[in-house]
């Protein structure tokens, strides 16, 4: 481990991490159902408290314009990269295709030997809802969520696969999917809108970090990122949207924070997960502890994969 990084146990809450010691899960609409209800508002985490917020506060909660941003540790990104490179060196010794570490559909990370994604029924719904989210934060709520998402995906690289998967569904399943998307979209569009352009919002931002000369590649996407490049203080916050089947998106959130740190040289100040089905946002401040945990997540997965590969020979 590089000397610039604090020795942290990623399984223990970091004292300075709001997310771990006072993690917040928020949604924009006050809902009588409280924490567990769709569109409900909750503050979860170690304390397990519950709070209520009003409509339209999600963007403000993400960015907190008045809050003080932590200064950037200039050696952190290099230290994290060196730590990762040391940890994946065993993979480089093995042959075979590059190992791609990316967010999995269940909230944990996944490592595969190819970059292809499979479009299961659950992934199909999530893809449609992510598109609804993207349209909403770009140009406002779509008119008819299901149809508009399909129309939008027609110009996307994966659009043909989605259209084909939807077309193959039996009529009743298709109607069911349409209703699920329409229902979930109402929560998304009630909570989100286009952020001010001066916040430099962007969607569908791809992040990658090749390690061991490209033998291992870390990948993720930010469904929404805001804030310009750092000039000495943390300046970026990023949101990952996921389907409702995900129990804990923490590892994926951490991976997003890690990748943004590696590529920009400055850690983001905040990362969040947005549950598209339940319309719930989980916000986490980025700390050294969170980034250390992200490295541990990656190395544990790569190590397990390497052992499987080695055992299979």
């Amino acid at each position: 481990m590089p000397p610039s990084l604090p020795l942290l146990d990623p399984t223990r809450p970091a004292k300075t991490s709001v997310a771990v010691s006072d993690g917040r899960t928020v949604a924009g609409r006050a809902a009588p159902g409280g924490a567990g209800a769709p569109g409900g508002v909750a503050t979860a985490g170690a304390a397990g408290g519950v709070a209520t917020e009003l409509t339209g506060t999600l963007l403000g909660r993400l960015r907190s314009p008045g809050s003080v941003r932590p200064p950037v540790d200039h050696s952190l990104a290099g230290g994290l990269r060196a730590w990762l490179e040391d940890g994946v060196v065993a993979v480089a010794a093995h042959g075979g295709p590059a190992l791609v570490v990316r967010p999995g559909q269940d909230g944990g990370l996944t490592a595969t030997a190819d970059e292809a994604t499979r479009l299961s029924g659950r992934a199909l719904r999530t893809t449609l809802l992510r598109t609804v989210f993207r349209i909403t934060v770009t140009s406002g709520p779509p008119r008819a969520a299901f149809e508009d998402a399909l129309a939008a995906l027609a110009v996307d690289e994966e659009g043909d696969a989605v259209a084909e998967a939807v077309r193959r569904l039996p009529r009743h399943r298709r109607a069911q999917l349409r209703e699920l998307v329409r229902h979930a979209a109402s929560g998304i569009t009630a909570q989100w809108g286009p952020p001010p352009a001066s916040w430099l919002p962007r969607t569908g931002e791809r992040l990658a970090a090749p390690l061991a000369g490209g033998r291992v590649v870390l990948r993720s996407d930010a469904d929404l990122a805001m804030g310009g490049p750092s000039a000495g203080r943390a300046s970026v916050c990023a949101v990952r949207a996921h389907g409702g089947a995900v129990r804990d998106d923490g590892p994926n959130r951490r991976l997003l924070a890690l990748l943004e740190t590696l590529r920009s040289g400055a850690a983001p100040f905040r990362v969040a997960s947005y549950d598209l089905d339940r319309a719930r946002l989980t916000v986490e401040d980025v700390t050294d502890g969170l980034l250390s945990a992200a490295v541990h997540d990656v190395l544990a997965l790569v190590d397990a994969h390497t052992r499987v590969r080695a055992g299979g020979r």
Binding site: P142, A151, A152, V155, G204
Partner: peptide, 22 residues
């Protein structure tokens, strides 16, 4: 393009342009 398709093109181009502009 239809409005939703145009929105996705807009989103994609915004991400690209923001990266280059900054």
């Amino acid at each position: 393009l239809s409005p939703p398709a145009r929105a996705v093109v807009q989103a994609s181009a915004t991400a690209w342009a923001t990266a280059v502009w900054t």
